[in-house]
Amino acid sequence: HNLTITQGKLFFHYNPKLCLSEIHKMEEVSGTKGRQERNDIALKTNGDQASCENELLKFSYIRTSFDKILLRWEPYWPPDFRDLLGFMLFYKEAPYQNVTEFDGQDACGSNSWTVVDIDPPLRSNDPKSQNHPGWLMRGLKPWTQYAIFVKTLVTFSDERRTYGAKSDIIYVQTDATNPSVPLDPISVSNSSSQIILKWKPPSDPNGNITHYLVFWERQAEDSELFELDYCLKGLKLPSRTWSPPFESEDSQKHNQSEYEDSAGECCSCPKTDSQILKELEESSFRKTFEDYLHNVVFVPRKTSSGTGAEDPRPSRKRRSLGDVGNVTVAVPTVAAFPNTSSTSVPTSPEEHRPFEKVVNKESLVISGLRHFTGYRIELQACNQDTPEERCSVAAYVSARTMPEAKADDIVGPVTHEIFENNVVHLMWQEPKEPNGLIVLYEVSYRRYGDEELHLCVSRKHFALERGCRLRGLSPGNYSVRIRATSLAGNGSWTEPTYFYVTDYLDVPSNIA
Rank of each mutant, 00 (worst) to 15 (best):
Y498A: 09
K317L: 13
C391H: 01
T343A: 13
N490L: 04
N360V: 13
Q275C: 09
C391F: 00
E389N: 14
A263R: 12
G264S: 07
A381R: 03
R319P: 11
G325E: 08
V327H: 11
E281L: 07
E260R: 08
D229V: 03
P496S: 10
P387G: 15
F226N: 08
A394Y: 06
H294A: 04
L487T: 05
N435E: 02
N422P: 02
N206L: 01
S239D: 15
H211A: 09
Y445M: 10
Y504G: 09
L464D: 06
D385G: 12
H211D: 01
D222I: 06
V414R: 02
D229S: 06
N208D: 13
V327F: 12
S348E: 06
N383P: 02
S305H: 08
R390C: 09
S398N: 13
Y441V: 12
S257R: 03
R318C: 07
G436N: 04
S444A: 06
R318M: 08
E378T: 09
K357T: 11
S320G: 15
V329Y: 14
Q275R: 03
Y504E: 13
F289C: 04
T415K: 07
D229M: 06
L470D: 00
A335G: 09
F298I: 02
L437G: 13
S509F: 12
E356H: 12
L437W: 15
N360I: 15
C391Q: 00
A394V: 07
P354C: 14
P300R: 02
A336L: 11
V423R: 15
R471I: 08
E495Q: 11
K406I: 10
E388Q: 12
E362I: 10
E310I: 06
E378V: 09
K302S: 06
R286M: 00
G476P: 01
N435P: 01
P332L: 10
K406F: 07
P431Q: 03
A399H: 08
L369R: 02
F355W: 13
A263P: 12
V331L: 11
E310R: 09
E389V: 11
D408P: 01
S223N: 11
R318W: 15
F298L: 03
C266L: 08
G489A: 05
D409V: 11
L277Q: 11
V480M: 08
V424I: 02
N490T: 14
D503S: 14
R286D: 00
F285L: 04
G449P: 11
V214L: 09
R400L: 10
A484N: 02
V331S: 13
V414I: 12
H461W: 10
R447Q: 13
E433K: 03
L440P: 01
G412R: 11
H371V: 14
P354E: 09
I438Y: 03
S344Q: 13
G308F: 04
F355H: 13
G264F: 03
G306K: 13
L426D: 08
G234F: 09
V423L: 03
G412Q: 11
Y498C: 14
L228S: 06
S342P: 06
S486N: 01
Q384S: 08
F215Q: 13
E265F: 12
E404H: 12
V365W: 06
E433Y: 08
V501H: 08
G374D: 03
T485D: 06
G476I: 01
P270V: 04
V457M: 07
R481T: 07
N339K: 10
S509Q: 15
K317H: 12
R286W: 02
R319F: 10
L464T: 14
C468L: 07
C269M: 09
P270F: 06
K460R: 10
H416R: 06
S348N: 14
F226Q: 08
A220E: 12
T343K: 13
N208L: 09
D503M: 06
S479H: 11
L455V: 12
